[in-house]
Amino acid sequence: MDRNKLIKWIKTPAKMGNKYSLHAVYFCTGCGIIEIPPTITTRWDAERFGVTPAATPRQANLFLITGYVSLKTLKSIIRTYEQMPEPKYTVGFGSCPINGGMYWDSYNTIKHLDKYIPVDGWIAGCMPRPEAIFIAVTHLWKMIDNDMADGYKKYRNNYDQYRANQEKVLGSLDWPPLFK
């Protein structure tokens, strides 16, 4: 461990802790999830970066949206995202959450995920390879270092807008607003 890193650990332990201990929600939305098992197991071993799957959103701080998001899934995604403790980071995985991908004209999927929940980064491709996940993780580290991964703050500040967007596509939501 070099000296700069040590100083950072002492100055901002919370930030450093969040950086090197990314526990991902084990939430399979679409086909992208197929890239996750090799990523976390022997072949690519995500654990050496501190990235491990967490059993519940309460224990996690990283949310990988792996693939297209149907309306039904969106509801669960929102609920799961709201249950994660802050600070929390979202990464869209694959082209579908970015702009709808091959489902761009589907009646049943949403096209821009970041209208409904804040997304800190995207991994483009169909499918992105596991290496892309690691690049995304290192990018996320930089963003956390520079306080740029602030999606959760955005969500809090613009909650009314997000909630309105959510209600527009999902109708009424059966849980009370997260922030009042």
């Binding site: 509801k75 669960s76 249950q83 849980w175 009370p176």
Partner: peptide, 12 residues
């Protein structure tokens, strides 16, 4: 939080 706000795999 309310008692009902528990983890249930994305639903309530």
């Amino acid at each position: 939080v309310n008692q009902d706000d528990t983890y249930a795999a994305g639903t309530s």
